[in-house]
Amino acid sequence: MNIFRLVGDMSHLLAIIILLMKMWKSRSVAGISGKSQILFAIVFTTRYLDLFTSFVSIYNTSMKVFFIGTSYVTVYFIYQHFKPTYDSNHDTFRVEFLIVPVGGLAFLVNHEFSLLEILWTFSIYLESVAILPQLFMVSKTGEAESITSHYLFALGSYRALYLLNWIYRYYFEGFFDLIAVVAGCVQTILYCDFFYLYITKVLKGKKISLPA
């Protein structure tokens, strides 16, 4: 565990807590893409099946359980508990355009042709694009609340920090996982436009609003 990895994990944890707090305190899921959150629930479920087959550490297990659990709570909030506030008219990204190609790719390009390994690969690929429905929603409505922006910034930072972690691990531990690195690069690149808006607007006290 190096500092990049730890701060990355904490950033991921923070993103989820920010999102849950936003929903709970405002009693609303306005501006949040339910589709992205369903994709994240699929990502965590398919990636952490190794909870049943291998034990790494208490830290590892508790984070996995937390990520899976909170992803389902989030989906429940959006589609049940705070459903009247869910803006489905603006959450129109076609997720089958992500799931089908990503599933095919996981089947073709993986480290080992076994069920758990293919599901892990699927999860890594899917995570890299899972935020697209949310970014699509922000661009469609032309705005994002500050709290949603903080959530997106923390979530995007997590994988960017993992990139630094992988560079560190490559040099100091000889560890290198091409699938994770390529997907991590794609994931981070997708956030670049948002990062720019966040730094130039949100940090100066303005909310993100795009020209119509």
């Binding site: 790494v56 590892n60 480290h111 972690n165 996982d177 091409l178």
Partner: peptide, 10 residues
């Protein structure tokens, strides 16, 4: 480097 069987990352 090799891809590891046990994945310690999240």
């Amino acid at each position: 480097g090799e891809h590891e069987e046990t994945k310690d990352e999240l």
